[in-house]
């Protein structure tokens, strides 16, 4: 009971801001330590792959980025339900703050995938099913951000983006399926798709540490983004209030 009321009390934007301010330095420190540990394990402890050599280390950056690129969309979809069903002010703040993060991590996954592809496939870009799906996800993030920036009023932008996010989330499985189908239809059989062996613990442990580190990093950035957005909205309200107070005639006392 105590935990539930503690969490639901954060639904108040002011209390949330205070909580975020208190927690952020700790989270930032924790994510810095975890990322350092993860990169140390990935770069020095994990063995090089017998087939791919040192390039396999890109995976420790690539896989967590891809995972967060998808998680950001899930957070946005949950936030969108919150906007449309409960009209909660924090839900939209969360969805808005997650969009650039999702775009950034998706871009990171694409860029590292491309860098990984150069030594493995011999080209920077392969129209591989997974890369292509991610490219479309990246485009959807950019579209959502463009729609939001095209609307001045936050409450209108919130509803429009929420609807588009939910339409997108209905579509993402369809897109994923159709891209996979398209890929098997067109891809020559020569693609390196060696049946992935079960991962050795010496690689799995650093990967998990990296995934946790990136997730904590994401939570930190998301909280910071939400706090900034709350400040930005407060500023906007204050500015409008000041402007309308300056324009309005002096109230008769």
């Amino acid at each position: 009971m105590g935990l539930i009321s503690a969490v639901s009390s954060l639904a108040n934007p002011a209390r949330f801001s205070a909580f975020a301010t208190k927690v952020l330095p700790w989270l930032a420190g924790l994510s810095a330590a975890l990322v350092a540990l993860g990169f140390y394990l990935a770069l020095f402890v994990a063995p090089a792959d017998y087939q791919q050599g040192e390039t396999v280390r890109i995976m420790f950056l690539h896989v967590p980025s891809a995972w967060l690129g998808m998680m950001a969309y899930v957070i946005m979809a949950i936030g969108s339900v919150g906007v449309l069903v409960w009209r909660h002010p924090l839900a939209d703040v969360s969805a808005k703050a997650a969009a650039p993060l999702g775009a950034a991590f998706t871009f990171l996954a694409l860029a590292t995938g491309s860098l990984w592809g150069k030594p493995m496939w011999g080209t920077w870009w392969v129209w591989d099913a997974r890369l292509t799906s991610f490219l479309i996800l990246f485009l959807m993030y950019l579209g959502l951000m463009a729609l939001r920036s095209a609307m001045e009023e936050p409450s209108r932008a919130a509803k429009a983006c929420a609807i588009l996010t939910l339409v997108g989330s209905v579509n993402i499985p369809i897109i994923k399926f159709s891209v996979d189908w398209w890929n098997t239809l067109h891809q020559p059989a020569s693609v390196i798709r060696a049946g992935r062996p079960t991962m050795d613990p010496s690689i799995l442990t650093p990967l998990l540490v990296c995934a946790i580190a990136f997730t904590v990093l994401f939570v930190t950035l998301h909280l910071a983004g939400m706090r900034t957005e709350l400040v930005r909205r407060r500023l906007r309200t204050l500015r409008i209030a000041t402007a309308s107070a300056a324009l309005a005639p002096e109230p008769a006392e």
Binding site: M140, L142, L147, A150, V167, G168, I175, F177, S178, W181
Partner: peptide, 20 residues
């Protein structure tokens, strides 16, 4: 700015229709 925005929003969603 709706003119350019609609294709940007809808083209990624239209991928399955195009593929099939």
């Amino acid at each position: 700015r709706g003119g350019l925005l609609v294709p940007v929003l809808i083209l990624p969603l239209a991928v399955p229709v195009l593929i099939f």
